[in-house]
Nucleic acid binder design. Structure first.
Lengths: 154, 154
DNA sequence: TTTGAAAAATAATGACC
DNA sequence: GGTCATTATTTTTCAAA
C-alpha cells in the first residue's frame, strides 16, 4: 500500500464508500440520516465512514456552488501560461493570491499551465492577465481564451 | 433590470450577500447560526438571505469536494475540441453523458471547446478521448494535455 | 431587521449485539 | 458492521418589537 503526500494511507474505497461520495457530491448537505437511508447502511456506519473519508482527505471539504454570473463574475476565460522554470510550487503560491484564478493546472505539452479565470468584466480580466499574471517572475507569455459558456458535469 | 435565462431577476447583491457567499463557499455546511454570527446578522436575516440566494439560483447547490486521486481518478487532462457546427446545446448534452468530463467550456479562439477530464488511469483517459469524444458527430479533432498537478483556488 | 421562544429534526456519542 | 438510547444542537417557524 502506498502513501499519499498527506501521510494518510491510500484508502481502498469499497462500493459503499463510492456511493457515499456520489451522494455527497450531488448534495453536500445531506443529513447523515438521509445519506444512510440512500446508501442503505446504518446511521452509525454512515457516520463513521464519512468521518473516515474526511479524515483521510478523500473528502476535502464542503462548498456552496455559486453561479459566477449571478454573483457578479460575468467574464470567464481560460488563460494558458508559458513559464521559464519548473518552480511550480512558487508559481502556484503566487497564483493562489489572485482571487480571480478559480482553477490552475500544470500541463504537459504546448502549454506549461492553464488557469480558469473568473472576473467581474472584461476590464477586470484584462487587469488580471496583464498586470497580475504577466507580472509574475518566470511567466514568459500568456494566451487568453474567452469562455462563451461553461458547465460543470454534474 | 435585466433578466437571466432562468427567469429570475438579476439580483443586486449587497455586501452582506457577498460575505454570505464567501462563507458558504469556504464551508458549505456552516449552520445558519454560525453563518449569522460570522456575518454579524441575525439568524432570521441569515435564514431569509440564504433562502433568497438559493431561490434566485445564485447558490446552485451544495457539494462535497472529493479528491480525484484519492477517490480513484488518478489521471486528469484538459482536452480541447475542434467542432464542425455551432450546436453547442447538442454537444453539451452529449458531453454530459460522459461521467469523466468534469467541466466543459465553449471557447473563442483557436479551440472551440475545452474539457476537464478525470479518469481512473491513462487507459481510461484514452478510451474517453478516442472512443467517446471522437465518436461524437461534429467533433473534428481533439488535443489532449495531460495534467501533472492541479488545484482549485480556494 | 432583530430578538425570543418553542417544536421538530438532526447530530453526535456511547452501550451493547 | 448494526441497533438502541440519550443528550446537545440546529433547523424552522412564529410572534413581538
Amino acid at each position: 500500500m502506498t502513501d499519499r503526500p498527506g501521510g494518510q494511507p491510500t484508502a481502498t474505497l469499497d462500493d459503499v464508500d463510492r456511493r457515499i461520495l456520489a451522494e455527497l457530491r450531488a448534495d453536500g448537505r445531506l443529513s447523515i440520516r438521509a445519506l444512510a437511508e440512500r446508501v442503505a447502511i446504518s446511521r452509525a456506519n454512515a457516520y463513521s465512514r464519512v468521518e473516515r473519508l474526511t479524515r483521510d482527505r478523500v473528502i476535502t471539504g464542503f462548498r456552496a456552488v455559486v453561479d459566477p454570473a449571478a454573483s457578479g463574475l460575468s467574464t470567464s476565460a481560460y488563460v494558458t501560461l508559458t513559464v521559464r522554470q519548473n518552480s511550480w510550487r512558487a508559481l502556484r503560491a503566487e497564483l493562489e493570491t489572485i482571487p480571480e484564478v478559480a482553477h490552475m493546472a500544470l500541463l504537459g505539452g504546448e502549454f506549461d499551465a492553464i488557469l480558469l479565470v473568473r472576473a467581474a468584466d472584461n476590464a477586470a480580466l484584462r487587469t488580471v492577465v496583464l498586470e497580475r499574471l504577466q507580472a509574475i517572475p518566470g511567466v514568459l507569455g500568456t494566451r487568453t481564451f474567452l469562455i462563451f459558456e461553461d458547465a460543470e458535469n454534474p
